[in-house]
Design a protein around this nucleic acid. Structure first.
Lengths: 244, 244
DNA sequence: CATTTTAACTGGTTATAACAACATAATAAC
DNA sequence: GTTATTATGTTGTTATAACCAGTTAAAATG
């Protein structure tokens, strides 16, 4: 049956997130101590600490040595620059997501894409250009490129309905692990402005991203995209934790 | 003598970063296995794994179960949106940093600042407005506000020379722990454009940030700032790791 | 020869245990 | 009453140990 047995620290983490979301704990209130969680969930301290540590890194909690572990401000806790789909971000914001395909197909990778995706010369890529809407208002224009050898047959999907990330996970078993992003502020060209329903003098955020994933267990670049994001209606929040 | 005995996992981490920076390991080459590092450094596996885990989170390494731990692309490994000073970022890029004070003083916190810094009405804040230069070219205009009760006497420092973050750490013993940031693309007003030496039609990145720190062991907001960043000359890189 | 099995590696998860470092409130000493 | 001391709580670090889960190449099998 191949049931994925999830690790205990992961279950504990999800349980704590649930409680935070249900506001059983409130801002700056302490969660139960590590020893208490140990006996409540019948796990070892190392398991409790791993769950708590990840939640601290994700901005849900903060700890004070000798005192306890506390709930952080809930507002920004969800990272709006998620690794997963833009659609998920829109849903999180409580809006209705939709998308429209501008172009798609298979082409030989340009120099830039060759470099970013670690491809040999002449290798083909699948490209997909879409506009995302939140409550029927256009919010971004994204052009994505993927190495075609990793996603053979992907052109058969209808990406005005399907989520690219779900297809990658479910149909191609690609697990996204990390991403490099750069951010710039630019003025949109006429075409982009038209598609986003704005005038070209409004500045937009340009995200240039390369996403890495595990394909057959091997870590490699999976996707690169350029996302032109309206900044007049939507803001990006990032939560960051010190390395020390 | 109060020598800070640093934890073993931290020393191991720094050692590995050193080796990566010295390019003893190269991109996509494996580092020694966890068991090997255990005996090399005479520490337990839990210590090795903590060091490696933090380096993975910081974008230095990636791991493949059953195979090994490898060096990631070194280029983006330093997060240019650091928690520490803008000056440090400029130095990392191999450029000469400098700064100019536009304004500074003590004022009663506005509503916005009250909220962000968790201050009662009428509470005073220290503000500091500076332009940062890299190789004598202006790159950003930053206006910072700090709760004055946390930094009494800070107006005596000369922040055209001193680093705000070093003063906070060394003179006020404030340890920065995390930050919430938002990013927008905006057009600069005339004053900002003049200070940055650009024309007002060039879009800039506006970072609005609140930094949290430990003051006397208590986690609390320490600073909020607005940073207008030229985006025509400098890009921001973010490395992001999946939560699962 | 091709295929399967095994053994020996890798990182991933978890338990138990001890002590350090810090916080705080109760207690003892002055 | 005020100040030290102690006890007991918290999180932080580290060691030892065992087993799980992938990867790979050598060895056994057909």
């Amino acid at each position: 049956m191949d049931i994925d047995k999830l690790p205990k620290y992961y279950l504990l983490k999800k349980e704590l997130i649930d409680r935070i979301d249900r506001e059983e704990f409130k801002q700056d209130e302490p969660i139960p101590s590590e020893r208490e969680l140990m006996s409540q969930f019948d796990v070892s301290r190392i398991t409790v600490r791993r769950a708590i540590n990840e939640l601290v890194n994700e901005g849900y909690l903060y700890t004070i040595q000798g005192k306890g572990t506390y709930i952080k401000n809930g507002r920004y806790s969800q990272n709006l620059l998620s690794l997963t789909s833009c659609t998920q971000d829109i849903i999180k914001l409580g809006m209705k997501p939709s998308r429209r395909i501008i172009a798609s197909g298979i082409e030989v990778a340009e120099k830039k894409r060759q470099h970013l995706l670690h491809l040999p010369e002449g290798e083909k890529v699948y490209f997909l250009e879409r506009v995302y809407f939140a409550d029927d208002e256009p919010i971004n224009l994204t052009k994505t490129w993927l190495p075609y050898r990793l996603v053979r047959g992907i052109e058969k999907f209808d990406f005005s309905e399907a989520s690219l990330y779900e297809v990658l996970q479910n149909d191609y078993h690609i697990e996204l692990t990390s991403a490099d992003r750069s951010i710039e502020a630019v003025l949109s060209d006429e075409e982009t402005a038209r598609l986003l329903g704005i005038t070209p003098d409004i500045p937009i955020l340009l995200f240039t991203c390369t996403t890495y994933g595990k394909v057959g267990g091997i870590e490699q670049p999976v996707e690169t995209f350029r996302c032109h994001y309206r900044s007049d209606k939507f803001k990006f929040y990032i939560h960051q934790v010190s390395e020390n």
